[in-house]
Design a protein around this nucleic acid. Structure first.
Lengths: 215, 215, 215, 215
DNA sequence: AATGAATGAGGGTTCATTCAT
DNA sequence: TATGAATGAACCCTCATTCAT
C-alpha cells in the first residue's frame, strides 16, 4: 500500500478505533481479530501497534470515547430548560442516541460483570471512564433534586437508588427494544420509537409526583 | 416441555453441559476451551463431540435448559394465589433466582444482539428456546389481565408492550444490581436485596392502578 | 499428512527433540523456529505442543539428554582399569565424543551465562541437569584422588579448583579445535585429532607428578 | 591499526555502537532490539540505518572494536620487560581484562561456530577483525620463541599448536570462572581471582621448562 | 461408545528494515 | 543528515475439530 500522508497521529488512532468499533459490534471483542481491524482500517497490522499498545488498549480507548460522548449527550439533555418531564424525555433520548451510536458499548456497560472487579491495575483509560461515569451520576442527581423541588417528582424518592435503578431499567429497556426489534414490530403494532416512548412514560409514572403526594 | 426419556447418553450430555456451564460462568464462553470442559466433565475431549456437534451446541443446550428452569420458576410464582402485588413480587423473585442460578445466561438473554438475527439456520435447541419464551409471555399476559380484572393494575396498560418493557427493565435492574454490587453497597446504604426491592416496587407503582383510574 | 501409527509418546518426543537439536545447532536456539522444527520432524506445528509444553521445554529436554549422555561417556571412560594417563585420555576422548555428538550443547555448557542465575523457577529438567553435573564432578574427583594415591598426579593438586579449571580448559580447547578447524588444518600441519592430542598432553603435564614431587 | 580520521559521523557510529554494546551484554544480541539501541543511543531508529547497514554490521563493528582493544592489551602486556613468567601472567591478565570489558565478545570468540564458515561474503569489519587476530598471534609467537630462547619454556613446544591450544584453554578457563562464579565461591573457598591464578599457574607448568629440559 | 493423537487455521505481538520528507 | 511513519514477515502459541481405532 502506498505510504500515507503525514497526518496527526490522533487521526490514525481514530481510524483504527473506528474500524475496531464496527467489528467489535459485529462479532464481539474476542472474535474480532487484529488482522481484520487492520484490514478494515486500511493499515497494516503492525501499524496498529504503533498507535495502540495492544488490543486491550483499543477497547479501553473506545469505551472511554463512548463514555465521553454519553456525557456530552446527557449534558445537553439537561441543559434544556424545559420542565421536568421534558428533561426526563431528553435524558431518555440521549441514552437512546448513545445506544444507536455505540450499540456495542451500551451493551457492554450493562454486561461488564468482570471488568470492574477482576483486576486491580486499571489502565488510565479505565480510570478516566469511571470518573466520567461519576460525573454523569452527579448531573442526574441534580436533575432529580430539581424535579423534587419543582414538585414534579415524588418526595420520597431515594436519590442514589433511583439513579442506579433507572440506569439499569432504561438500559434494559433500550436493549430489549434493540434486540427484540423484529419481534416487537411483528407482534405488537409498534415501531421501536413507540415502544420505547411507552416504556419511558411508564417508568416516569413511577417517579412522578402523584397529586396526593403534593398535598 | 416433556423431558426427554432417559436415553443412554443423556446423562453424559448433562455431565458435559454442567461442566461447561460452570466454566462459561467463570470465564465466558469464548475463553472456556473444549479442553477445559472435557477435563472438568471427566471425559476425553473427543467424547464431547460424540454428545454435542460442537461448542455452539453446548451453548444452545445450556440456554434451553436455563430457559426451561426459568419457565418453571415463573410458573410456580404465578401459581401462588396471593393478590396481584404478591404475585408480581414472586415473578420478580423468580427472575432474580434465575439470575442467581444462571448469571451467565441471564446476561446473555439481554445482550444477544447477534444471536437472534445473524443467522437463519437455527438449531433445534434455539427454536425450542424461543418456544418456551413464548409460553412464558403467555403466562405473564394472563397475569396482567387478571390484575386488571381485579382492579389492581391500570386499565390503560397495553399488554404486549408492557410485558416486553417489563422484561427489559427488570432484567436491566437485576443486572445492574449484580454488576454494580460493590458500588451500590458502598455508595448507598443498601444491600442488594434492599436495592432490588426498591427498584421492583418503583416499577410496580408504574402499573398499579391509581385510585383515580378505578373510578 | 497421513495419521501416524500409534507409537509410545516418547518416540515422538525423541523425533521432535532430535529435529530441534539439529536446527539449534545450525542456527542457534533463538533462530530455529517451531515451524521449522515441526517441518523437520515431520509433524504439524501444533503437534509439537502436544509433546512439549513450549520451546523452552524442548531445550531443557535436550540439555538434560545431552548431559545424561555425557555422564554415560565419562562413566565408561573411568571404568577402564588402565593407568592414570590412560584414564585421563579416556576422559578427554569422552568429552570430545560428547562434543561431536552434541556440539550445540557442548558449546552451551560453556556459554550459559544467563541460564544459571537469571531465573529462580527451574524446570524439573534443569534441576535434573544440575544434579547430573554434580555426579560427574564426583566421579572426576575420585579419579584425581586415585591418581594422586597412585603417585601419578601431583600431590599439591587442589581437587575442586582442578576439576573446574580442567573442565573449562578442556572445553575451551575442544571448542577451539572445532571452531578454528579450517584454520588449524591450513596453518599448522595437524589434523584436529593431532592438535587435540597435543593439547590434552600439554595439559596432562601440568598435573602429572614430576619426579621431584614423588620424593 | 591506524585509527580512523575523525570523520563526521564516526561520533555517531560510536554512540550507537556503544549503546548496542551495553544492550548486547545485558540481553544478548538477538534480544536487543534496534528500537532499544536507538533509544539508548538517543537517536531515532531510522538513524541507525544511516550509520550502519543493519544490525549485523553493528555486531561486526563491535567485534572489531573489541579485537582492537584486545590487541592493545596484549601489546602492552608483552612490552613489559619482565621475565617470561611475568610476561605470561600479564598476557593472562590482559585476556581477563578484556573479558571483563567485553564479556559478550569474549564469549562470542569461543562460540562462533557459525560465524566463521556459514557465509562467504565477509564484511570488511570481519576481515579486519581476522587480520588483527593474526597480528596478535604473531606477537604471541614471538613471546614463546623468546621464552624458549631464554630457557624458560620447554624446547619441545610446537609453537602454533601451543598458541591455539593456549588461546582455547585460557578462554575456557576464564569463561568458566565467570559463568560458575557463584558455584566456585560457594563450593571452594576461592575468589575468582584466586581460582584463575591457580588455573593460570597450572597451565604455565605445562610449558615451563623443567630442569631436565634445560640440560 | 469412547478416546488418543494429530492438526489447520488463526491469534496477538514483535522487529528489522524501508521510505518519504 | 535525520526521522516519523509504516510494514512484511515471522514467531510462539492456542483451540475447535477430526480421524483411526
Amino acid at each position: 500500500m502506498a505510504r500515507r500522508k503525514k497526518e496527526p497521529g490522533s487521526v490514525h488512532r481514530s481510524n483504527i478505533a473506528s474500524a475496531a468499533q464496527e467489528l467489535f459490534q459485529q462479532k464481539g471483542i474476542a472474535s474480532a481479530s487484529m488482522d481484520e481491524i487492520a484490514q478494515k482500517a486500511g493499515y497494516s497490522k503492525a501499524t496498529l501497534y504503533v498507535y495502540f499498545k495492544n488490543k486491550e488498549e483499543i477497547v479501553g480507548f473506545l469505551v472511554l470515547e463512548s463514555m465521553e460522548k454519553l456525557y456530552g449527550h446527557i449534558l445537553k439533555a439537561l441543559e434544556s430548560d424545559g420542565n421536568t418531564k421534558t428533561r426526563y424525555d431528553n435524558i431518555c433520548k440521549s441514552l437512546l442516541k448513545y445506544q444507536q451510536e455505540f450499540p456495542f458499548y451500551f451493551q457492554l456497560a450493562l454486561s461488564e460483570i468482570n471488568i470492574d472487579f477482576s483486576h486491580t491495575d486499571f489502565l488510565p483509560e479505565e480510570q478516566e471512564t469511571f470518573r466520567i461515569g461519576e460525573k454523569i451520576n452527579e448531573k442526574v442527581k441534580q436533575f432529580i433534586q430539581d424535579g423534587i423541588a419543582a414538585g414534579d417528582l415524588r418526595r420520597d424518592i431515594q436519590i442514589m437508588p433511583a439513579i442506579f435503578s433507572f440506569w439499569g431499567m432504561l438500559s434494559g429497556l433500550i436493549l430489549t427494544a434493540e434486540n427484540k426489534k423484529a419481534y416487537i414490530a411483528q407482534e405488537m403494532e409498534l415501531s421501536r420509537e413507540e415502544f420505547l416512548t411507552y416504556g419511558f412514560d411508564t417508568l416516569y409514572r413511577a417517579i412522578a409526583g402523584a397529586p396526593e403526594n403534593l398535598l
